[in-house]
Amino acid sequence: MIALTFALGLPLAFAAASDGTDRCFDRSISNGHPVMIYRGDRKCHDFSASTTVSGLWVDEFEGQRLIPQGRTLEDAERVRRDVRSRRIWFSTDDETRWDAPAPKRGEGGSQIYRIRVTGRYALKADPAAPGGFGHFGASDGLFLADRVVSVERLGAAGR
């Protein structure tokens, strides 16, 4: 179980449920301290209809990024360097079906994969608002994978 504590307010993308309760976190006590336990992206966000994307997945330390139009290592590096490009957090969970073998993550540093995936984009109350998804809410969007059809390792990121 992962417990998260927040000293500041929650990112903009986290919303209260219609009954006024927090739909993203369960509140608990751990070692005498109040904690908030994240329920997961599927329970926390509203999503678009399912779509299939063929693009790139950049798997980095504390960073997961989907580049929907990407095809090559050069595409990934160009988008990674462009601070104006929209950051889409790539999310998988226990309900994601992997038709292709899942890569061994965390080995060999940041990696870039060509990926074909079916999933849904998270909806935001204010699509123009920056951030709100992923690690520290630094990504502008979120794509939750329902099914990973294919994964091909292209190479290391940041070469």
Rank of each mutant, 00 (worst) to 15 (best):
A76Q: 02
P127E: 09
G70A: 06
R147I: 00
T51A: 15
D146W: 01
G55D: 15
G109S: 12
D93E: 00
I115C: 05
E62Q: 14
D26I: 07
S50V: 13
G108C: 14
K124T: 12
V79E: 13
E95Y: 03
T21N: 08
E152F: 03
L66A: 10
G32Q: 13
A156L: 07
G109F: 10
S85C: 11
L142M: 14
Y38N: 11
A15M: 10
A17V: 12
R81G: 07
V53P: 13
V83I: 07
D126Y: 04
D19G: 11
E152T: 13
R80M: 09
R80P: 00
R27M: 06
M36I: 07
G40N: 06
G141Q: 13
D22F: 04
G70Q: 01
R80I: 12
E60Y: 03
L66P: 06
S139I: 06
R116Y: 04
A49T: 13
F61I: 08
G155L: 02
G70T: 06
D82F: 01
V151H: 03
R42I: 00
Y113P: 03
K124N: 13
R116W: 01
G106W: 07
L66T: 10
R97D: 01
V117A: 00
D22K: 13
H33R: 11
R147P: 01
S150Y: 00
G63M: 10
Q64Y: 03
G134C: 09
A122S: 15
G134H: 12
L142F: 11
I88M: 02
P130M: 04
G119F: 01
V53E: 14
D82E: 02
S150Q: 02
P101A: 07
G134E: 09
Q64N: 10
G108K: 11
G70R: 01
I88P: 11
R116P: 04
D75I: 04
D26R: 14
L12W: 08
S50L: 13
P101Q: 14
D94Q: 11
S50G: 12
G106Y: 06
D126L: 03
K124E: 10
I67P: 12
Y121N: 05
R87P: 02
V83M: 04
R81T: 13
S150C: 06
D41K: 07
L144N: 05
D59Q: 09
A49R: 07
R80L: 09
S48Q: 13
C44H: 07
T118D: 07
T118N: 04
F133E: 09
R84S: 15
S85L: 02
D99Q: 15
F47A: 04
P101R: 03
